[in-house]
């Protein structure tokens, strides 16, 4: 099924999408927001650039974007997979609680803020290039991986990563010299055991974007984890 998005606003486009199943292609997408919000049970390929909040509350659908995406990709997504063959804007995967976001290029500011996890629901985000400032702020669960492939002279991550982190795990394909982490997290070289956690994820990633798995996997990674799941416990006195 092919939908031409030309001259459709977000409401009209989502109306056409709702209730469809199977493979759907959206042609001439041009900035329509909220595409596939809350949707499940279909696979959507987008040609053109989707607008903000692509796949918000996504509930199991597969989304492939053959271009860049904008802000708030996968906001509060619950299940499913979003693949971006380009860069993404700010606030990617905000409060994500399940599923995967795989980005070929770079991510803007505030990616993976307040990702969380519960039992078998562990959200995962892989950014192929570099991530902007405030990566994984308030991270409460899930796995964030930044690969720094073709970094173009930029640091793998901008300023203030992991502020307020109290759960989950972050993998940065770098020795992270020059990256300043906050005091309540530990950044250390990844062990073989750590790497096993993301082997399958990276293999999927490399297959999708055509990277050589060995080259991506066999590198020095830094793992960041929080020191406590109750980082603010000592700050209060009962009054």
């Amino acid at each position: 099924m092919v939908i031409n998005a030309k001259n459709l606003d977000h409401k009209a486009l989502n109306e056409k999408l709702r209730g469809l199943s199977g493979d759907i292609t959206i042609e001439e997408c041009c900035g329509q927001r909220f595409i596939a919000a809350g949707m499940s049970g279909c696979s959507i390929t987008i040609n053109g650039v989707p607008g903000n909040a692509l796949g918000a509350y996504l509930n199991g659908a597969d989304i492939i974007v053959n271009a860049n995406a904008q802000d708030a990709v996968g906001d509060t997504m619950n299940e499913g997979r979003i693949i971006i063959h380009g860069n993404v804007g700010d606030a990617t995967g905000y409060a994500m609680r399940g599923g995967k976001i795989l980005v070929k290029g770079n991510a803007g500011y505030r990616a993976g803020i307040h990702m969380k996890e519960y039992k078998e629901k562990v959200p995962k985000m892989v950014i192929g290039g570099t991530a902007g400032s405030f990566l994984g702020e308030y991270q409460a669960g899930g796995i964030i991986v930044v690969l720094g492939l073709e970094p173009g002279g930029k640091n793998i991550v901008g300023s203030f990563p992991c502020t307020g982190m109290h759960g989950g795990k972050m993998f940065l394909r770098s020795d992270c010299k020059g990256v300043k982490f906050p005091s309540q997290v530990t950044a250390r070289p990844a062990t073989g055991e750590d790497m096993e956690e993301i082997r399958e994820l990276l293999s999927e990633y490399c297959q999708i974007f055509g990277w050589d798995f060995e080259e991506v996997f066999n590198a020095a990674y830094t793992v960041v984890t929080p020191d406590s799941k109750n980082p603010y416990k000592q700050m209060y006195v009962h009054n």
């Binding site: 802000d71 708030a72 906001d75 700010d90 606030a91 905000y94 609680r97 505030r110 803020i113 307040h114 969380k116 996890e117 519960y118 039992k119 629901k121 405030f134 702020e137 308030y138 409460a140 669960g141 307020g164 109290h166 759960g167 799941k229 109750n230 980082p231 603010y232 416990k233």
Partner: peptide
């Protein structure tokens, strides 16, 4: 949908 014993922190602003 968060593990037992984890602080439930709602950040001051919505970061988006």
């Amino acid at each position: 949908m968060i593990p037992e014993g984890t602080d439930a922190i709602s950040p001051a602003p919505h970061h988006d």
